[in-house]
Design a protein around this nucleic acid. Structure first.
Length: 319
DNA sequence: AGGATCCCCCGCCAGA
DNA sequence: AGTCTGGCGGGGGATC
């Protein structure tokens, strides 16, 4: 169970990436039913820590790295420059993994996990600008480009900047269930869940945010998850050819129609597992899986636990 | 649990 | 030249 989170910083810390870690793990949201965590920002020599990018301000950090020794999760934020983490930091990261804690990197923070030898043989990712460099510097690392984050168990790496939030929300879900994760997301006013495999690029979200042509169809789908949904039907509903629909879908949503629909069905199934006592078979049909086997297959593949186990952990009667 | 069938979905290319 | 569309084919994943 996750109870204690430490974030490691040193000179060159980037405020946005550091800030999202503080926002995710440091805030008290107990009035919204979110467990309160012990949280600390730590640095090798407590005191002033310069931020990167010549932003003209410093942080005053109270805690030394010894404070990270009890953490269940040790986060390494992004720094200006990708090399040369202090040796004490690398030792802290290695010690965390050795004692069974998890480590999480945001953006170029993955390079420091690499320096600590924690990426060897593991799948990982970083900002799309740097995936090639990461793979070159750490040949043993299995770098996955173009995803938002990678959860390889003890080691979680996320892509550029804001994808760190997605990785954090993923961890909230994994540790505390979808209801808590949604409460955290709601407080931060971000979408509750973007799947890790989603593309880092969502072209039209940047290029023409006002022209979200698929929004009505997406909304319709989430209201009709229990029905059979073929791509041809959705394309017709969007008044496009199937080929154009699939292309626009990837551009706007960042994944394929079928993968997205499956992800929505799993999300709904998760909610129903937590909030109701309906049998898994019933939930499968309620969310549009033809057979319960399909739900179980996708659920265990993406969540790492069976629907029943998920309910035992996060359901109403869970202890 | 495995195999047949279905349906995505992506690369390719021609046309607007 | 450059962009967008949509039909086709095939391989592979999903479904039953």
């Amino acid at each position: 169970m996750l109870r204690d989170v430490a974030v490691l910083v040193w000179d060159g810390a980037l405020p946005f990436e550091l800030g999202l870690l503080c926002e995710s793990w440091g805030l008290d949201r107990s009035e919204h039913g979110v467990p309160r965590l012990d949280f600390a920002v730590c640095t090798p020599r407590p005191g002033p820590v310069r931020t990167g990018l010549a932003l003209g301000f410093s942080l005053d950090v109270e805690h030394g790295l010894d404070r990270a020794a009890s953490a269940d999760l040790v986060c390494v934020s992004a720094m200006q420059g990708h090399a040369g983490a202090p040796p004490e930091v690398l030792a802290t990261l290695r010690a965390a993994v050795e004692r069974g804690a998890r480590v999480l990197s945001v953006c170029s923070g993955a390079f420091f996990l690499g320096e600590a030898g924690l990426l060897d043989g593991r799948e990982c990712t970083t900002h799309w600008l740097h995936t090639d460099e990461l793979a070159a510097r750490f040949p043993q690392a299995r770098v996955v480009p173009e995803v938002l984050y990678v959860d390889s168990g003890q080691v979680i790496t996320s892509a550029g900047s804001a994808a760190g939030l997605d990785a954090c929300l993923h961890l909230w879900r994994e540790e505390f269930g979808a209801r808590v994760a949604s409460a955290v997301a709601r407080r931060m006013v971000v979408p509750p869940h973007r799947d890790g495999g989603q593309a880092q690029f969502i072209r039209s979200a940047v290029v023409e945010p006002q022209c979200e042509t698929l929004r009505p169809v997406l909304d319709w789908v989430t209201e009709h998850l229990d029905e059979p949904l073929s791509v041809d039907d959705l394309a017709r509903r969007a008044a496009m050819s199937p080929r154009t629909f699939a292309r626009r879908f990837r551009d706007e949503v960042g994944t394929t129609p079928h993968a997205w629909i499956t992800a929505q069905r799993l999300r709904r199934a998760e909610e129903l597992l937590e909030a109701t006592d309906r049998p898994v078979e019933r939930i499968a049909t309620d969310v549009g899986f033809g057979q319960a086997a399909a739900l179980r297959h996708h659920f265990t593949r993406t969540r790492g636990v069976s629907p029943q186990d998920y309910r035992r952990t996060f359901g109403r009667r869970a202890g």
